[in-house]
Simulated assay, not measured.
Amino acid sequence: MNYITEKLRKIKEKGLYRELRYIETSQSPRVKIEGKDFILLGSNNYLGLCDDFRLKKAAINAINLYGVGSGGSRLTTGSFDIHKALEEKIAFFKGAEASLIFNTGYMANVGIITALCNKSWVIFGDRLNHASIIDGCRLSGSKLIRYKHCDMNDLLNKINKYKGSNNLIVTDGVFSMDGDIAPLPDIVKIAKEHSIMTMVDDAHATGVLGKNGSGTSSYFQLHNKIDIMVGTLSKAVASEGGYVAGKKDLINYLKNCARSFIYSTALSPSTIAVSIKALEIIEKDEGRRVNLLKMSSWFQNELKTAGFDVMKTETPIIPIMIGEADKAVEFSKSLLNEGIYIPAIRPPSVPKGTSRLRLSLMATHTKQDLEEVLIKMKFIGKKLNIIGG
């Protein structure tokens, strides 16, 4: 126990100690925490569907029909007809032959990579890939070669140096902490020229980018060019779970070989029903996406004009670079005192020296919400010498 106590002390000294904050309402633009009202600007509920009455109705109807638990893993007693319906829906949504649901996006990445790759594989991954991708690569025993963030020259150099008999390029579609988009056309071109498989995690693009919100492959018009398409149902889709879409042989192989799928109790039918309904709404409601991206662009420009160091982004994820962890935490806490909830992001979620406030907008935020946030951010930013006075 002394070891644990000492480790905690060091974490606190570095400004990296984390505590949970308990939200008492739905994931809406304005929430309650410990009885107090806050504007929420850190949620991945990009389309504002977490409190949508149509999704709540879908969950209630599913509970009435199927009950509340799935009762087993998918390969024993946990597969319902509604699971099949969602997998068919996702396959159509992604323009793929088939799909498979995992309990989380994390479990999808770990399960896919460890099932597919082993010590004979070389995996080329963007340096800023999500932790679940990195963990999957490490657990697979493959040789992981990390290339500089979105740097295609570095990727090509490392392919020429390290390429083996079995190879995979894996990248986020939208990077969760920077908000930028991977250069998929270049990645696909390089992969094709070198006969390398491609895998894209569209967790933060699903529902936000591309035709009908179907993600970065659609955004770049790369239909059927990505071998393994991964995503989550817990962000813009406002539900829970992860998915993979691709060729039928790939999906059948994962059903039999992905341990995080095989040995997990299935998601409850009510959760599956919410995902189906949300995808139906996402496919039809183009206005919600257009409004979100328009509002995000306006807000980003306002922050830049105020003097904040806003990283380049074309998505609802807007990172404000602070640098040191303790200063980022101080900024976040000061905003919290003013009724604005924006989490400070620190190592190990981001590299040392790049701590930031990660703002993320919802389609249901109003201009009035954001104008109020701007006023308070400017005031506190000047007070803490984050922007000029």
Results as ranks from 00 to 15, higher is better:
M1H: 11
N2C: 06
L8W: 10
K12Q: 08
G15E: 12
L20E: 09
E24I: 05
S28A: 13
S43D: 12
N44Q: 06
N45G: 08
L49W: 02
D52R: 11
F53A: 14
L55G: 07
L55A: 08
I60L: 15
N64W: 08
L65F: 11
Y66Q: 05
G67S: 13
S73E: 13
H83P: 03
K84R: 13
E87P: 09
K94E: 02
A96R: 14
A98I: 01
I101C: 14
I101K: 07
F102P: 04
F102M: 04
G105K: 06
V110E: 07
V110I: 15
G111W: 01
I112G: 01
K119N: 09
W121I: 03
R127M: 12
A131R: 08
I134Y: 06
L139E: 14
S140C: 07
L144M: 15
Y147L: 11
K148N: 10
H149P: 11
M152S: 11
D154P: 11
L155M: 05
L156R: 15
L156Y: 14
N157V: 11
K158H: 11
N166C: 15
I169Y: 05
I169M: 05
D172V: 01
S176R: 02
D178G: 01
G179Y: 02
G179H: 02
I181A: 01
A182H: 06
P183M: 04
I190Y: 10
S195I: 07
M199Q: 10
V200F: 11
S214K: 05
G215S: 12
S218W: 03
F220M: 12
G231V: 00
T232A: 13
S234A: 15
S234V: 00
K235I: 00
A236M: 00
E240Q: 09
G241Q: 03
G246N: 11
G246F: 14
K248M: 09
D249W: 07
A266E: 13
T271Y: 12
I272D: 02
V274L: 05
V274I: 14
V274T: 10
L279S: 06
R288T: 12
R289Q: 04
F299Y: 15
N301A: 03
L303E: 10
L303Y: 08
P316V: 01
P319V: 03
P319H: 01
A325R: 02
D326V: 12
K327S: 14
F331R: 14
L335Y: 06
L336H: 09
E338L: 15
E338G: 03
P348G: 00
S349D: 07
T354R: 12
T354I: 00
L357T: 10
R358Y: 02
R358E: 05
M362K: 12
Q368E: 15
D369W: 00
D369S: 07
E371H: 06
L374R: 09
I375A: 14
I375N: 12
N385S: 14
I387C: 11
G389I: 07
